[in-house]
Design a protein around this nucleic acid. Structure first.
Lengths: 126, 126
DNA sequence: AGGCTAGGTTTCCGATAGGAACCACCGGGT
DNA sequence: ACCCGGTGGTTCCTATCGGAAACCTAGCCT
């Protein structure tokens, strides 16, 4: 087999793999994308990101915060206001995330086409 | 709020979002990475990717195949041999995936450091 | 009193993930 | 004739996850 110069990512418990598992997640990608242009409020994210529930948003944000990718600012106002923004570390993700989302925008239709083109007719004895 | 020129990705049911959900997944990323240098056998992937089970590998491969990102070659030999390789569409993902995995390799340690640095001491009334 | 706002949390339950164990195939050894 | 081994895949079963909706806090407003 060809040579992946020293795996990482392939090794179950190395930091690189952990990092992949942290961001390679449906909601994580979209949330980071949403934060990529500056601080955004919790409520703004909710209405920006179609289909996400408050629970999942909070959960995702907490996880990213714990891993040092975003920062949380809670203003002691009333009604409360909470803003999230990328940390310096999190900002280094903007590029990878944008590469990904742009691929998705460019190839989303192709992927969909493949889906309803394939549906393997019959005699499927794999 | 600032302008994400025409969202996509944010819209719950557009092709772009579907594409993100397809690849923004723990195993999917690693599997695609594993295939990024040429055809690989099922068994090779199993031993290459630490921690994946046969079931999850098969499942992931099937999903990618259905969406036109990889192709499956089953040779009618005995013992059976099955190879997977990227399609042309799948090959367009090599770049995004590599950007991601390289970020992971470069920042995996920083992410881990943040994790055991943060553990917010006490009085945590959010 | 009751309502409103904004961010979270809790509860309940169906859907999914994931590991262990099993199956099919067939040539080769004994 | 019998069992074994090497491959790829599939069941079975449980633990965890995800989503909807209700509830919570705290102040200000009518």
């Amino acid at each position: 087999m060809s040579g992946f110069g020293r795996g990482d990512v392939f090794l179950a418990d190395c930091p690189a793999r952990l990092a992949v598992e942290l961001i390679a997640d449906k909601w994580t990608v979209v949330v980071l994308y949403g934060l990529s242009e500056g601080p955004v409020r919790h409520g703004e994210l909710i209405e920006l990101i179609g289909g996400i529930s408050r629970k999942m948003l909070t959960q995702t944000l907490r996880r990213l915060e714990a891993h040092g990718l975003i920062r949380r600012h809670a203003y002691a106002e009333v009604p409360p206001r909470v803003e999230y923004e990328l940390t310096a570390l999190g900002a280094t993700l903007i590029d990878p995330i944008h590469t990904l989302t742009e691929w998705a925008r460019a190839n989303g239709d192709a992927v969909l086409d493949a889906l309803d083109a394939d549906p393997e007719p019959v005699a499927d004895n794999r």
